[in-house]
Design a protein around this nucleic acid. Structure first.
Length: 257
DNA sequence: TCATCCCTGTGG
DNA sequence: CCACAGGGATGA
C-alpha cells in the first residue's frame, strides 16, 4: 500500500498527536510482534516522529521503534476501543489516544532498536543530482533500479511507473542508457509525482486499503498504474502491462521510449 | 539478477 | 479455482 507520499502524510498527521507524548501501554495482538512490548520500557516519551524512506521511526531517546507498513499496513489514530478490528496487530496506547497498527496481510514489521540502520539511498523528495552518475553504473531496467531502496528511497510500484510515464521513459530501458536530458526529465517527474500525491493525500486504489491515520482515503489518480487496456491520457494508445522483477508494470508504449 | 517466499484478501 | 496485490529479504 504505502509509498513515500502515504508514509509522509501518515507521519505528518501523527506528529502533533504523539510527539512529546508518552506511550503508556503496548500490546501485540500478533505473536510475530510479541517482541515489541518486551523490548520497550514504559512509559516512553516520543521525542520525534520521523520518516526515512518508507520507514516510520518513533524516536524514544535510548531506543527507536521502527515500523514498516509493507503492502497492506496502515496506522489509525483513535479514542475508541471498539475500532480494534481483527486486522489490528499492535496497539500503542497514549494518555491522549490510541494508535493502531492495522495490517491484513501481516507483512508489516515493527522493531525496537538502538539506532536506525537500514541501507537506504537518498530520499526521493530530496536533491536528485546524484542520479546523473548513479544511473550510469547499472544496466538494470530503470524501473527496477528506482524500486531498489538502496539506490533511492521512497518510490514504490505505483510512483515508479508514474514517474517514468511523466518522463516519457520506457521502464525496461537499462538505467545506464538514459541520456542526460532524460535523466533531467526523470528527476523532475519523480518530484512532480510525489508532490502531487502528497497533496492528494496519497493513492487509495479501488476505494479500499490505504487510509490516513484519521481514516481519509487518498485522491491521487494514477495515469498508467492499474490502467491496462485503457487509453493513455496523453495519446489514447492502450496502456500495456508487463512484468518486471515479478511486479506489474504499466506504461504507454507510444509515449514511453 | 532471478525466482521464491512471507501472508491474507479480493475479484474475475 | 486462479491471478494478483501499494514491499522487501533471501538463496541459488
Amino acid at each position: 500500500m504505502p509509498e513515500l507520499p502515504e508514509v509522509e502524510n501518515t507521519v505528518r498527521i501523527l506528529r502533533p498527536k504523539v510527539v512529546g507524548k508518552e506511550i503508556v501501554e503496548v500490546e501485540a495482538l500478533d505473536p510475530k510482534l510479541g517482541h515489541v512490548p518486551q523490548n520497550l520500557t514504559l512509559p516512553a516519551r516520543v521525542l520525534e516522529l520521523l520518516r526515512k524512506g518508507k520507514y516510520i521511526i518513533f524516536d524514544l531517546g535510548e531506543r527507536k521503534l521502527v515500523l514498516h507498513l509493507r503492502m497492506s499496513g496502515h496506522l489509525f489514530w483513535t479514542h475508541s476501543l471498539s475500532e480494534i478490528s481483527k486486522h489490528t496487530r499492535l496497539i500503542l496506547r497514549f494518555s491522549e489516544g490510541t494508535l493502531l497498527f492495522i495490517d491484513p496481510r501481516r507483512l508489516g514489521t515493527a522493531e525496537v532498536v538502538e539506532e536506525f540502520s537500514e541501507p537506504l539511498g537518498p530520499d526521493a523528495l530530496g536533491d536528485l543530482s546524484f542520479l546523473d552518475e548513479a544511473l550510469l553504473k547499472s544496466r538494470a531496467p530503470i524501473k527496477l533500479w528506482l524500486l531498489d531502496q538502496r539506490n533511492i528511497a521512497g518510490l514504490g510500484n505505483i510512483y515508479a511507473s508514474e514517474a517514468l510515464f511523466l518522463a516519457g521513459i520506457d521502464p525496461r530501458r537499462p538505467a545506464s542508457s538514459l541520456k542526460k536530458r532524460e535523466v533531467a526529465k526523470l528527476k523532475d517527474a519523480i518530484h512532480r509525482v510525489l508532490r502531487e500525491a502528497l497533496e492528494a493525500m496519497g493513492t487509495t486504489l479501488e476505494d479500499k486499503a490505504y487510509r490516513t491515520p484519521e481514516g481519509e482515503s487518498g485522491d491521487y489518480e494514477p495515469k498508467v498504474y492499474g490502467r491496462e487496456g485503457l487509453p493513455c491520457l496523453r495519446c489514447g494508445t492502450p496502456i500495456e502491462r508487463i512484468e518486471l522483477g515479478g511486479r506489474g508494470t504499466y506504461f504507454c508504449p507510444r509515449c514511453q521510449r
